[in-house]
Computed example of a mutant assay.
Amino acid sequence: MHELHLLLIFHLIGATIWVGGHIILSLVILPQVWKEKSVEKLFSFESKYERIGLPALLVMVITGIRMSYIYIIKISNWFNFENPIERVVSLKLICLATIVLFALSAQFYVLPRLKTDNTKLPLMTFHIIAVTTISILMLILGSFVRYGGI
């Protein structure tokens, strides 16, 4: 099996776990949390999901970087936007950085306050929906590589 194909398989498995988990969180868990006003369900899901979600994200980062090098998009070409594949890689990296910022905000600001203050639920909801939307966007961007980029 060609290295690129193997990397793509692992990348897609990671994306399945990451995006799928966030879709479940947004469409199943979050409505229950709002209906029952029970943030405990959110914390319960988060503690279980992060054990597979974070490693999946790490797999996607590692495989994504390696695949970009196979496509001859080295770190020095990131954010140049000069060719179609560079644009995909650069846009996905911007999305990843945005997700990291949301994760840091959630971890260090929103979640600690949400444990004792349900009024932070709208802010947490915004974080969840934003990360889910950005994750789906990354999936869509990645699909353009098949057609030579954007």
Results as ranks from 00 to 15, higher is better:
Ile128Gln: 03
Pro112Gln: 04
Arg113Val: 09
Pro55Lys: 01
Ile85Arg: 04
Lys120Ser: 11
Lys120Ile: 11
Ile85Phe: 05
Ser44Glu: 08
Leu139Gln: 07
Ile62Tyr: 10
Gln32Arg: 12
Ile140Asn: 03
Leu139Cys: 04
Thr98Lys: 05
Ile140Gly: 05
Phe43Thr: 11
Lys74Asp: 15
Ala106Ser: 11
Arg146Phe: 09
Ile65Ser: 07
Leu25Tyr: 01
Phe79Thr: 08
Leu141Phe: 14
Thr125Val: 02
Ser135His: 03
Lys35Ser: 10
Met67Glu: 08
Lys37Leu: 11
Ile23Trp: 08
Ile99Cys: 06
Thr116Cys: 05
Asp117Asn: 14
Ile70Gln: 09
Val131Leu: 07
Phe144Lys: 10
Leu58Tyr: 06
Ile128His: 02
Glu86Gln: 09
Asn80Gln: 14
Ser38Glu: 13
Arg146Lys: 15
Lys35Trp: 10
Val110Ala: 08
Pro84Thr: 14
Val33Gln: 01
Lys120Pro: 14
Glu46Gly: 05
Leu58Gln: 03
Glu86Ala: 10
Glu50Ile: 00
Ala56Phe: 07
Gly64Met: 05
Thr116Val: 12
Pro112Leu: 01
Lys48Glu: 05
Val131Ile: 13
His127Thr: 06
Val39Asp: 03
Thr98Phe: 08
Ser38Met: 09
Ser90Pro: 02
Pro31Asp: 02
Ser26Thr: 08
Ile128Cys: 06
Thr119Trp: 01
Leu139Asp: 02
Ile52Phe: 04
Met124Phe: 15
Ser76Val: 13
Phe108Lys: 09
Ile72His: 14
Ile29Gln: 00
Val59Trp: 01
Phe79Ser: 08
Glu86Trp: 04
Val39Met: 09
Arg87Ala: 14
Glu36Arg: 15
Ile23Asn: 05
Ile70Arg: 08
Ser105Arg: 13
Ser38His: 11
Ile94Ala: 13
Asn118Gln: 12
Ala103Tyr: 00
Lys41Ser: 06
Ile62Lys: 10
Leu42Phe: 14
Phe102Met: 07
Ser90Asn: 05
Ile29Glu: 01
Met138Glu: 07
Met67Gln: 10
Phe45Gly: 00
Leu111Arg: 10
Met67Ser: 06
Leu57Lys: 06
Trp78Ile: 13
Ile65Asn: 06
Val61Lys: 04
Val88Asn: 03
Asn80Pro: 11
Phe45Asp: 00
Val33His: 01
Ile99Phe: 00
Ile134Arg: 09
Ile128Pro: 01
Leu57Pro: 03
Phe126Tyr: 12
Ala103Val: 00
Thr116Glu: 15
Phe43Gly: 14
Thr133Gly: 15
Glu50Ser: 03
Thr98Tyr: 03
Thr98Ile: 10
Ser90Ala: 10
Leu139Gly: 12
Ser135Met: 08
Val145Phe: 13
Trp34Pro: 00
Ser135Asn: 04
Ile62Trp: 12
Tyr69Gly: 06
Thr116Ala: 12
Ile129Val: 15
Ile62Phe: 15
Tyr49Thr: 02
Leu96Phe: 05
Ile129Pro: 11
Asp117Trp: 02
Tyr69Pro: 06
Leu123Tyr: 10
Lys74Asn: 15
Pro84Leu: 13
Leu54Phe: 04
Val145Trp: 12
Glu40Ala: 14
Glu50Met: 04
Leu93Ile: 12
Val145Leu: 15
Leu27Val: 07
Ile24Lys: 02
Val100Lys: 04
Leu123Ile: 14
Ile29Cys: 02
Val145Tyr: 14
Glu46Trp: 01
Val59Leu: 09
Lys120Gln: 15
Pro112Asp: 00
Pro84Trp: 05
